[in-house]
Simulated assay, not measured.
Amino acid sequence: MSQPNQRQGLIFTLAAVLTGGVLVAGTMVYTLLKTTETPSNIASTTPIPNISPNLSEAPVETSPIATSEPTENTPPIPVQKKQQSISPTKTNPSKKNLGGVNLANKDLRRMNLQKAQMGGTNLANSNLSGVDLSGANLGGANLSQTNLTNANLSNTDLRGANLSGANLKGANLDDAYTDGANLNGAILP
């Protein structure tokens, strides 16, 4: 065998061994992750919290915390307490952060989700009939088998969302971003 052919054979063998090693390592990681998941019977015994129709705050604390210490010449800065409740008339829809939340099989018809951040949220089999989702971010969300009849989805980001089997009859999709969305079996307006 000539030297260039021998090198090519060696490179090919090395690439095959490395590829096989990566596949074996990936399979091991996948198996390890699957064995450490919470069993489904534990999840079914955990009570599902009620979700109020007025979600005016992010699910996590996002406000800055005052931590400055008083010095010799400056008085201490009072730390404001977080407001306990916000009246529905003062709701700022742009502060709703429901990204990654599991809302599968929920009736969400009375919720105001305008401009809500819901990227990656699981809304499978939920009822969003007539809900205002205009300007919301639903990129990568699971909306399979979801009832979206007469929903306002104008200016909504649905890129990469799973809308397979969703009912979009009468929905407003004006200026919605649907690049990469799965619409297999969806009932379209």
Score class of each variant (00 low, 15 high):
residue 108 L to G: 06
residue 124 A to S: 10
residue 94 S to H: 01
residue 140 G to C: 10
residue 23 L to G: 10
residue 62 T to I: 03
residue 52 S to M: 01
residue 64 P to A: 07
residue 34 K to D: 14
residue 12 F to D: 13
residue 147 N to A: 07
residue 39 P to C: 02
residue 52 S to R: 08
residue 48 I to F: 00
residue 69 E to V: 14
residue 138 L to Y: 05
residue 166 A to G: 04
residue 47 P to H: 06
residue 17 V to E: 03
residue 172 N to S: 04
residue 46 T to I: 13
residue 110 R to T: 15
residue 6 Q to L: 04
residue 146 T to H: 03
residue 55 L to P: 09
residue 110 R to K: 15
residue 75 P to Y: 11
residue 15 A to E: 02
residue 31 T to G: 12
residue 166 A to H: 05
residue 139 G to A: 14
residue 88 P to D: 14
residue 60 V to D: 09
residue 88 P to M: 08
residue 37 E to T: 13
residue 175 D to Q: 08
residue 82 K to D: 04
residue 171 A to I: 05
residue 10 L to S: 15
residue 161 A to G: 10
residue 88 P to W: 06
residue 66 A to I: 09
residue 81 K to T: 11
residue 180 G to C: 06
residue 179 D to A: 10
residue 28 M to G: 14
residue 53 P to I: 07
residue 55 L to V: 14
residue 55 L to N: 10
residue 68 S to C: 05
residue 58 A to Y: 00
residue 137 N to H: 05
residue 140 G to R: 10
residue 77 I to E: 14
residue 61 E to L: 03
residue 70 P to M: 03
residue 8 Q to F: 08
residue 113 L to I: 05
residue 142 N to V: 01
residue 51 I to A: 10
residue 116 A to L: 01
residue 101 V to K: 13
residue 140 G to F: 02
residue 130 G to L: 07
residue 16 A to Q: 03
residue 54 N to M: 12
residue 159 R to S: 12
residue 1 M to K: 09
residue 83 Q to G: 06
residue 73 N to G: 09
residue 109 R to H: 07
residue 138 L to W: 08
residue 27 T to A: 14
residue 32 L to V: 09
residue 177 Y to V: 02
residue 179 D to G: 01
residue 113 L to W: 02
residue 157 D to T: 01
residue 131 V to P: 13
residue 35 T to E: 15
residue 22 V to N: 02
residue 9 G to E: 11
residue 117 Q to G: 09
